[in-house]
Amino acid sequence: MREELISLREEALRDIAAVTNTPAFERVRIAYIGRAGRLTQAGEKMRHVPKDDRPEIGKLLHEVRQVITGALESRAAELRAAMEAAELSGVDPTLPGVAFAAGYLHPLQMLQKQVVEIFRRMGFALAEGPGIETEWHCFDALNTPPDHPARNEQDTFYLPDGRLLRTHTSTVQIRTMETQAPPVRIIAPGAAYRRDEVDATHLAQFTQIEGLYVDEDVTLGDLKGTLEYFFRELFGADTRVRFRPHFFPFTEPSYELDVRAAALGGGERWLELAGCGMVDPAVFERVSERRGDDAYDSRRVRGFAFGFGLERLAMILFGVPDIRMFVENDQRFLSQFSR
């Protein structure tokens, strides 16, 4: 038994040393310490060892087992290390990473989302209206007289049935007030259409963002505060906003809004970015006639409205030289707007 254990030890150490890969290692491991392995069987033979010899043989068996398992473990570690070394040989960590490339959102969409988020923080809800509109919603309700130049066929697209493509998103003001009583606080992005010949700064269809706030105690101060906050959120804390008196049929007083900010190329130049004003009482009158109630009685409610073109804003902000790039859909252009 003693000799048998010693030769078992020698053979095992030889076999383990000879192993060079994992399957061979497994075979050797099972051959010696598996359920039917030679060492396991040797252990079972202990029953037949005379009682007196047992302490000595038992001790030897224990030693042999320790030697073999120790050798297996260290061989296993060597094999893992060799395997890892083989796997890593020739690996160059400076090779480029590989990932599935996500696409890009349209820059106008990204900017629009940013704008909407800022107004939502101030408690504005979204609103929508159709692109094909009635003359009443686009002009009459917005206090634009019947012979106003904007209404002629030179400036506005008409459909054969007399409807038109809205020339501004201000129609959404009317659509909203028709169905919703004050207070109203909405932000409405959407397409607008004007009969402009397409060139580097004009598209016949462009994007506007409209806002309206009507309640019992809305003031010109609210208009100022709201738009100042908006532009500072959008362009940064250094943004300066100037309200320049202007004229629009549907607001009074009316202002054009000029902005200066480092984000807009800095400079000393005021950039005209938006139109705004207090809702003209005539607009409330038209809406009231349509609604047949006094929810928008101009003696009780007041409001402000504003609107701006998204393309112009994006052109200045992103340095886009030609407005047509927004509808060209060149992936080399779109892929620059990662985030």
Binding site: R120, R121, M122, G123, F124, A125, L126, A127, E128, P183, R185, A188, T219, L220, G221, D222, K224, G225, T226, E228, Y229, F243, P245, P253, Y255
Partner: peptide
């Protein structure tokens, strides 16, 4: 208008169908 003090107030808005869209 520079004499008009700016006022910033926010009220919660309940979202409608346009918000969901």
């Amino acid at each position: 208008i520079q004499r008009v003090p700016s006022r910033l107030r926010a009220f919660p808005a309940s979202s409608g169908i346009a918000d969901r869209r």
